[in-house]
Nucleic acid binder design. Structure first.
Lengths: 180, 180
DNA sequence: TCGGGGTGCGACAATTCACCGCACCGCGTC
DNA sequence: GACGCGGTGCGGTGAATTGTCGCACCCCGA
C-alpha cells in the first residue's frame, strides 16, 4: 500500500473489526473503523479515504445500501464488500452498486488490500478459473468454516445454525484439519 | 420477449442445449444453438443477435474468453453466463468481462430471459437478499444437485466427482426428497 | 454466590457409510 | 448374435459417524 493509505472499515462485529483493523494497520494503512452505516457515511463525507471495506451484514441498513451511498459520494472510491458467506446474486448486486470486489469471511487481509488496489480476486487467477468440482467433504468443510466464522467461533451456536449436534461439530473439527 | 428475439445459445452438452433451446423457442424467441466457442464467435459476427447465453464450461476455450470476445464484437449485447455451479470469483469475472448476469444450472428459462432483458437476478429480490444460514444438510443437498446436473444425471459419475460411494449417493437421493 | 451458557470429552445405541456382490439393461463392436 | 463395457438398482455386512446424555470445568453478569 502507498504510504499512509486511509481506509474506512465498516463492520458491526467488534472482534472481527478490531482484528482486521490491527492487521491492516500492521500492513501500513491508516484505518478508521466504525460499526454502523450511519457513522460510515458521516466519516466518508469528511475524511478523504483511499478505500472502504464494508460488511454486508450491518444492523439496520444493508451493507449494499451503504455501498451505493459511498459510491455516490465518491464514485472512484475502491470499495470491497465483506460478508460471512455470500451468494452469487448478492455479489453481483454489490459490484453493480459500485463495489470493486466481494470477499467472504474469513478474508485474508492481504487479499483485501490487493482487492482494493484493483488486483481483484479474479485477477489473481490470470487466465481463467476452471470451475472445479469440490468433493462433498470439501463443501461441507468450507461451509462449516463460514458458519463458524459467522458465529464468531462459537461452536454451540454454529452447530445450531448448521442443524447438527454440537458434539458432531466438535468431532468434525477435530478430525478434519485440512480436507484436501 | 419482443417479437422474434434472436438469441445465441452456446453449450456443449447436447441434451441441455436442446432442451433449453426448445424452452426458449416455446417462449417466442429465435434461437441459434451451437456447441463450441468457435462456432459461436462466427455466428455472432454474421447474425444480428439480441442476446447470448454462454455456458462457462466449454471444451477447449473457456466460456469466459468467449464472453470477452462477444462483448468485444458487440459491446451492447446482453450476455448471460450459465454454469453447472459457479463461484463468486468467476461470477464477478464474467460480469467484468462483459456479461450481464450469471446463473447456475439448472436455470429456469424464464429467469434467463429476464436476465437478458436486464431484469437481473438481484432485481428479482427487490430490497436485499439477507444472506441466510443454510443448514449443513441443505448445503450438501444443493451441492449434490449441482454436481448431478453437471454429470448429466449420471449417478456413478456424480458419486465419483463428489468423492463418495455410488451406493451412498443413491441412498441420499432416495431419502432426501426435499430437505427443507 | 448462584445461575446461564460455552467447552471438552467419555460412553453407547442408532444410523449411516464404504465396500462387496449380484442381476439386469442399453450400446457399441467384433 | 455374442461380447465387453458402463450404468442402475438393490441386498448384506462390518466399520465409521452421529445423536444423545452426562459430567466437569470455566467465565461472566446478576
Amino acid at each position: 500500500m502507498n504510504p499512509r493509505t486511509r481506509l474506512l472499515l465498516v463492520d458491526d462485529d467488534p472482534n472481527f473489526r478490531e482484528r482486521l483493523q490491527r492487521a491492516l494497520v500492521a500492513r501500513g494503512a491508516e484505518v478508521v473503523a466504525v460499526a454502523f452505516a450511519r457513522e460510515a457515511s458521516g466519516a466518508a463525507r469528511t475524511g478523504g479515504f483511499d478505500g472502504a471495506i464494508v460488511d454486508l451484514r450491518l444492523p439496520g441498513e444493508s451493507g449494499l445500501d451503504l455501498v451505493a451511498e459511498l459510491h455516490g459520494l465518491k464514485p472512484g472510491l475502491p470499495i470491497v464488500v465483506l460478508t460471512g458467506f455470500g451468494s452469487i446474486a448478492t455479489a453481483l448486486e454489490a459490484v453493480r452498486l459500485g463495489a470493486r470486489d466481494y470477499l467472504t469471511k474469513p478474508a485474508d487481509p492481504d487479499r483485501i488490500l490487493s482487492a482494493l488496489r484493483g488486483e481483484a480476486s479474479f485477477a489473481a487467477s490470470p487466465a481463467e478459473a476452471p470451475p472445479e468440482i469440490p468433493s462433498l467433504d470439501r463443501v461441507e468443510w468450507e461451509h462449516i468454516q463460514r458458519v463458524l466464522t459467522e458465529a464468531g467461533g462459537n461452536i454451540s451456536q454454529a452447530a445450531r445454525l448448521l442443524g447438527i449436534d454440537r458434539r458432531s461439530l466438535q468431532r468434525k473439527l477435530a478430525k478434519h484439519p485440512p480436507p484436501r
